[in-house]
C-alpha cells in the first residue's frame, strides 16, 4: 500500500452568493486594492490516504467529499494528490 497526501479545496458553487467573499472584496476595494476582484472564500482540508494506487486514493477522497466533506447542493470541490515518501 502507498500513502498519499490529499488536499481538498471547497468553494461555494458559482451562482451562489458568497457573502463573505463580497464583504472581503468590498474591504479590499476600500483599502485601495481595487485590482482584486471576484473574491471567493472556501475551505481547505488536508488528509493522508492509504491506497494501492493514486487512482484508488482519489476515489477514496472523492467518496469522503460526497458523503461529508462537501455539500453538493451548494459547494464544488477539487482534489490534489501527491505520493508521500516512505518513512
Amino acid at each position: 500500500m502507498n500513502t498519499y497526501h490529499a488536499t481538498v479545496t471547497i468553494t461555494l458553487r458559482k451562482g451562489i452568493l458568497d457573502v463573505q467573499g463580497k464583504t472581503v472584496e468590498h474591504a479590499l476595494h476600500a483599502s485601495s486594492f481595487s485590482t482584486l476582484t471576484d473574491v471567493r472564500i472556501g475551505k481547505h482540508v488536508e488528509m493522508t490516504v492509504t491506497a494501492a494506487s493514486e487512482e484508488e486514493a482519489r476515489a477514496h477522497v472523492d467518496a469522503g467529499c460526497k458523503a461529508l466533506i462537501a455539500n453538493p447542493i451548494i459547494e464544488d470541490y477539487s482534489i490534489t494528490l501527491h505520493a508521500m515518501e516512505a518513512a
Binding site: 451562489i16 452568493l17 457573502v19
Partner: peptide, 10 residues
C-alpha cells in the same frame, strides 16, 4: 431538501 446558508448580513 435544501440547505441553510450564512445570513446575508453575515
Amino acid at each position: 431538501p435544501g440547505v441553510l446558508l450564512r445570513n446575508t448580513s453575515l
